[in-house]
Write a protein that binds this DNA or RNA. Structure first.
Lengths: 236, 236
DNA sequence: TTGCGCCTGTTTGCTCAACAATATGACAAT
DNA sequence: ATTGTCATATTGTTGAGCAAACAGGCGCAA
């Protein structure tokens, strides 16, 4: 209707200051530069980001919708913290979403998706063998996101990516923490193989994969908590 | 830890003005008092609600996170509209969530949940037989919410209720529109029966139930759109 | 010591007023 | 019919400001 010339649809998009603030804060939080539990002082943020307090407040409301931040009446904004209960909840929800993807994939058997998954499994393995933890985690995220995308539901994808975001928040501190994720070596290959098989096998393997992941994250979380308890004064 | 006396946990909670505004707007939107597609003028809203424009903006950001409202850069806030594509998306996502609930239920077979579902099915039937459309729809929502709750994942529940909210938005206008939902008579009894049976039967029936619902909503939506096209000047 | 009220600085919740940038619709010019 | 121009409405964002709520320290009484 409006653009019969070329496929240039929604290419142009400006970013409001608020949106930029959201992006900046999200990045800072997810990268672990702002630790979970940290109170966010509005005035300080406004000063640091070089914008008004009102704008910061709007940004915070957006982030609150993403679950990265929590508002406490008259007490301000706090970076969300992920408890053990949250972790199991997140993984339960992920399982629901990814099972939908696996089932859809088992039906349409789209070769493109399989190709993407194979590539990602390769990338993960490569990253793993060269000890690039961040790349492994990123690959893992994309692998599972692709799986969910196979269901073809944008809302499910958004939900899932929100879950992944929260999960990422959980290990924001441990992001570059050693080889705790030893299992991820060829786990994805195995999962991919199962995804090529019968639906039952696929979902079973998926469940196992996720439960292993959840358990591992739980363990890592407990470890971190313990470390925090042992050496409270860490300021240098 | 903090309240060892009685189960009074988070009973006390104040509502900020912003939250009240959110509640008021949400109610107005879901009840159909503000039609989908309506632009929300900040100044007008501020005046009507008796608060500042900035607060309205914050509330809008919150609602945007709920998907009830959309922001368009320099063009303002618009009540979200649900397209046919959205409807199928919503139902696909709902299916994923509710299947998780059905599977969990098939495992633990919690009699309490079955009881709740039975009660709700009764309520729905009663409401249906006395022609109370709103009550039928409400019962339907609660039935499916209870099913999802059986999975025991708060995040999944929130996601599902958000989906239901969007769905509700879709038929905000048609809420009291006749007996279009004839099928809902004992459909839930049937579904409940299947939920008591094997997991396979349960999910199959659930899929059927939801697809029927989606189709019906699509039809109703098309009908409304057509009606809109036929008599554009409806102002009396 | 423990518990209590009181005071004080800090931070939030919210308002108000203002201004630049942008969109929108009408109108004139081509 | 298309384009340029312009007035108007609305948004994006700022900055200041104030009342209320919180947090922590201090002193006083039990």
């Amino acid at each position: 209707m409006a653009s019969p010339i070329t496929g240039l649809g929604a290419t142009i998009q400006r970013q409001s200051v608020t949106e930029q603030a959201v992006a900046a804060l999200r990045e800072a939080i997810l990268s672990g530069r702002i630790a979970p539990g940290t109170p966010l002082r509005e005035a300080a943020l406004a000063a640091e980001l070089g914008l008004s307090r009102n704008t910061v407040r709007e940004a915070a409301r957006l982030l609150s919708g993403e679950g990265l931040v929590r508002h406490q009446m008259n007490r301000g904004i706090v970076v969300a913290t992920i408890t053990a209960a949250d972790v199991s909840d997140i993984y339960a929800a992920r399982e629901a979403a990814e099972k939908a993807g696996a089932e859809a994939l088992a039906q349409h058997r789209d070769p493109v998706v399989y190709q993407q998954l194979t590539d990602l499994a390769d990338q993960i393995e490569a990253a793993f063998s060269r000890g690039d933890v961040a790349a492994v985690l990123d690959g893992d995220r994309r692998f599972h996101a692709t799986l969910v995308a196979a269901a073809g539901s944008p809302r499910l994808c958004r939900f899932h990516s929100r879950l992944q975001q929260e999960q990422r928040l959980a290990l924001a501190l441990a992001e570059r923490s050693s080889r705790e994720l030893g299992r991820t070596a060829d786990d994805h290959r195995e999962l991919l193989h199962a995804l090529r098989g019968s639906p039952a096998r696929a979902t079973a393997q998926l469940t196992a994969h996720l439960q292993a992941g959840a358990a591992e994250l739980q363990r890592l979380l407990a470890l971190l908590a313990q470390r925090k308890d042992t050496q409270p004064p860490d300021d240098s």
